[in-house]
């Protein structure tokens, strides 16, 4: 599946947001995901299907004031 991830092309095995996260090997704690500028709740990650028009942004919590 080819998508745009954080403004760069990404090719991964799978169809859903959860597949993408597992492919990336990133922890799921403290992160948020938006597709086409819409925030996707965690409860929907497993059922959210991606397609080649999906503009995915993954955000992570970091230190800050």
């Amino acid at each position: 599946m080819k998508i745009m991830l954080n403004d760069a092309p990404c090719d991964f095995l799978g169809h859903t947001l959860l597949d993408l996260l597992r492919y990336l090997g990133k922890r799921e704690q403290g992160i948020a995901i938006a597709i086409n500028q819409q925030v996707v709740p965690k409860s929907l990650w497993a059922s959210t299907e991606l397609n080649e028009h999906s503009q995915v942004f993954i955000f992570e919590s970091i230190a800050g004031g």
């Binding site: 704690q29 403290g30 993954i58 955000f59 919590s61 970091i62």
Partner: peptide
């Protein structure tokens, strides 16, 4: 305590300060 959010760095794992 306050925290920020940023686009995830896909190349490296950042410190997990949440835990």
């Amino acid at each position: 305590v306050t925290l920020s959010l940023r686009r995830m760095d896909l190349k490296q794992q950042t410190d997990n300060i949440l835990q």
